[in-house]
Computed example of a mutant assay.
Amino acid sequence: MAQVRIFTDSTSDLPEELLQRYQIEVVPLYVIFEDQSYLDRVDIHAEQLFDFVAHTGKLPKTAAPSPGDFERAFAPFIEADEDIVFIGLSSELSSTIQNARIAAESFPDGRIRVIDSRNLSTGIGVLVVKAAQAALEGRSPSEIQAIVTSFIDKIEVSFIIDTLEYLHKGGRCSSVQAFFGSLLKIRPIVQVIQGAMQLTDKIRGKREKALNQLLQNALAFKDDMDTDFMFITHAQAHDEAAYVKEQFELHTNVKNVFLSETGCVVSSHCGPHTLGIVFAKK
C-alpha cells in the first residue's frame, strides 16, 4: 500500500521542528519586491520584509505557486508510489488551492487530494499536523481527508495587530481609519471567519490591554479546546509569545503549546509585533 505524504504551503507558518518530525513538504508562495521575486521562507523571511517596508514605505506583493510549481513538487513523490494530501491557504485569500487542484489533474485520479483549509498561518498548520499524525498512524488518504475536513470549522485563529499601517497599505482600512487608529492607539484584533480575515475588536490604549483581551478571549474556550496541541504565532514578539505560552500551560490541559513565527505572507498583511493564538476545538 502506498504511503501518504502531507504537503502544505509556506503560509502555514509551521516551525521547522514539526516539518522535520512529520516529514511535511512545503510549497512556497512568492514575495515580490518591485521587479524581484523571492520564495517565502526560502529566499526571504519576515524580518527582511519589514526592513523593505520601513525603507520604501511600500508593501511587497505576494503570489501563489503556479500549477507548474505544484506539479514539480508533487511528481517525485507520486513516482515513489506515495499518495499526497495537500492542505493550503484559504481560497478566499489566494489562488493557491485552485492552482494545486489544476496540478493534481496532471496525475492519476485519486493520487492527490487538495483540501482548502479555509484558514491562514498556523490555522492551516493545525490541520496539517493533524493530517501528518494520521498519516503516521497508517490512515488512508480518504481517512486523512475526512479527519482534516472534520476539523476545519473547529479552528480558532485570532491575532492582535500592533499597527494599522500594514492594513492601510494593503487597502484593508482607509487613511482616516489608520490616522485615528494611530492617534487613539487602537490595537485591532483580527479573527479568521469563513476563510477570511475580519476585524472583530478595536482595543484602545496600551498594548498590554489588547494582549490581555486576546488571551482572555482564547481562555474562554479552555474547556472546549482540543488538548493535543496549539500554537502561539508571532512576528517579532518573542517575549510576549513566551508569556502567552506560559499562560496556556498554566491554565489549560493542552499537552503541547508550540511557538511559531509568521512568514512573509501573513507578515505583509499584519506587520511586526503581531501575535496570534491558534487552536482547535473538540
Rank of each mutant, 00 (worst) to 15 (best):
Q145G: 06
V53L: 04
S106P: 09
V4D: 04
E79S: 09
K222D: 06
V53S: 05
I32A: 10
N212T: 10
L59S: 02
V4A: 00
Q213K: 13
H234S: 01
E16Q: 11
T274N: 04
Y22M: 06
A135K: 13
A241D: 03
I112K: 06
I277A: 00
T233I: 04
L214C: 00
A100G: 11
V53K: 03
T262E: 08
R187T: 02
K61A: 13
S94E: 10
R101W: 05
Q133H: 11
D40T: 02
Y22I: 04
A210G: 00
S12K: 10
L39W: 04
G195V: 04
L136H: 15
C173M: 12
C270G: 15
S150G: 11
L18V: 11
F179I: 14
D9V: 12
E143N: 09
K209T: 08
S121H: 06
A134C: 08
N119Y: 12
S117V: 11
F7C: 12
F279S: 06
G195C: 02
T149H: 07
T227P: 07
A235D: 01
V27W: 09
K169Q: 01
S37R: 13
F279V: 08
A135C: 13
E240Y: 00
D69R: 14
N99G: 07
L167G: 03
L39Q: 11
L49I: 01
T122H: 14
V53P: 00
L275D: 10
I32E: 15
Y38R: 06
